[in-house]
C-alpha cells in the first residue's frame, strides 16, 4: 500500500545511487525515483548496478597493469604478443591507435618506456559498455559516473524534457564547482569527461611543453570521444584544443595553471 507521503512528494525530485570501487576509483550509478516507489527503484538499481560492476571487473581483470596476472601485464612483460592476445585486447589496441592518429599523437596508448598502456581508454570503454548493458536491460533514465567521467541516458525527472546537470570541479578549489553542463534529455551531448594533472596527472604524457592546462573537460555524444579528447587536450595544449573543436562536435572547458579559463561557445553562459 503506497504511503501518503510518497504520493505527496513531487515526482522526479529524488534519486537512488549505488556505488562500487573498481579501476582505482569509485563508480556511481544513479536512478531517478520511479513513480512505482522508492523501494522498487532501489531493487532495480541494485540489479542494474550488479551488471555494471561485473562488466567493470571483467575489463579490469584483463587490462589492469596493477594485476600481475592480467593479460595486459603479460603483454607488458613480453610473455605475450599482440598476435596471441585476445580479440578484446586487440580491438582496444586498434581503437587506441586510431585515436593516436586522430589526435596526432596527443593521445597515445604507449607509455614513454614503450609499454602498452590502454588504461586511458579502458575506463571510457567500460562506461560505454555499461551504458549498452543498461539500455539492454531496458533502463531509460540513469547517470553513470566513473571517477568523474560521466555518461547519462534520458532525464533525471519523470518527463523527457529535463537534462541531467553535471557540475565541474574547480581544480583551484576542489570543494567548488567552476561550471556546469547539461547532458542527456534534449541536450546535444550525453557524455562528459574531465582530465587533469590534479590527481592522477601521471597518466597523461605531455607531448608539448606549451600546454599549461591543469584540467580539461570535454562534452561529446559518446564517452570515449569525450574522455580521449580531454586527455589529449591536457597533453597537447591549445593546438589540440583547436583541432578537437574543429573536428568533433564537442564542447570544451579548459583551465590554465593560473586558474583562468578557455572555453568553446557551448560553455558560455
Amino acid at each position: 500500500m503506497p504511503r501518503t507521503s510518497d504520493r505527496l512528494r513531487p515526482e522526479g525530485t529524488g534519486f537512488k545511487a549505488a556505488t562500487f570501487e573498481c579501476m582505482g576509483t569509485v563508480i556511481s550509478l544513479t536512478f531517478p525515483d520511479s513513480s512505482a516507489g522508492a523501494q522498487e527503484t532501489q531493487d532495480e538499481l541494485a540489479a542494474a548496478s550488479a551488471v555494471v560492476e561485473r562488466l567493470f571487473r571483467e575489463l579490469d581483470g584483463t587490462f589492469s597493469l596493477y594485476r600481475p596476472a592480467s593479460e595486459a601485464s603479460r603483454l607488458a612483460r613480453g610473455e605475450l604478443t599482440l598476435r596471441g592476445a585476445s580479440p578484446g585486447m586487440r580491438a582496444r589496441y586498434a581503437e587506441a591507435h586510431e585515436w593516436r592518429l586522430l589526435t596526432e599523437g596527443a593521445f597515445s596508448p604507449e607509455r614513454p618506456d614503450g609499454v602498452l598502456d590502454l588504461s586511458g581508454l579502458i575506463k571510457a570503454h567500460a562506461i560505454r559498455e555499461a551504458g549498452r548493458s543498461l539500455h539492454a536491460l531496458g533502463r531509460r533514465d540513469w547517470c553513470l559516473n566513473a571517477g568523474g567521467d560521466i555518461l547519462v541516458s534520458g532525464s533525471p525527472g519523470p518527463g523527457p524534457d529535463a537534462s541531467w546537470k553535471a557540475g565541474i570541479v574547480d581544480p583551484v578549489d576542489r570543494s567548488r564547482l567552476v561550471s556546469a553542463y547539461a547532458v542527456g534529455g534534449p541536450a546535444r551531448h550525453a557524455a562528459l569527461a574531465t582530465s587533469g594533472s590534479a590527481e592522477r596527472g601521471e597518466h597523461i604524457w605531455r607531448v608539448e611543453s606549451g600546454s599549461d592546462f591543469i584540467q580539461v573537460t570535454v562534452a561529446a555524444a559518446d564517452i570515449v570521444t569525450a574522455d580521449i579528447l580531454a586527455t589529449a587536450i591536457v597533453s597537447g595544449g591549445m593546438p589540440m584544443l583547436d583541432r578537437a573543436a574543429d573536428r568533433w562536435d564537442v564542447a570544451v572547458l579548459a583551465v590554465h595553471a593560473d586558474g583562468s579559463l578557455m572555453a568553446t561557445p557551448g560553455f558560455r553562459a
Binding site: F15, E21, G24, T25, V26, S28, T30, K123, C143, N145, G147, G148, D149, I150, V152, P156, W164, K165, A166, G167, I168, V169, P171, R174, L177, V178, S179, A180, Y181, L192, A193, T194, S195, G196, S197, A198, E199, R200, G201, H203, Q215, T217, L253, L261, A263, F267, R268, A269
Partner: peptide, 19 residues
C-alpha cells in the same frame, strides 16, 4: 561560464578521482 551551485547538479565531473 555556465555557472552552478552544488545543490543544482546531480553529478560531478573532475579529473580522475582516486578511491
Amino acid at each position: 561560464v555556465l555557472s552552478a551551485q552544488s545543490a543544482d547538479v546531480q553529478t560531478i565531473s573532475g579529473a580522475t578521482v582516486t578511491s
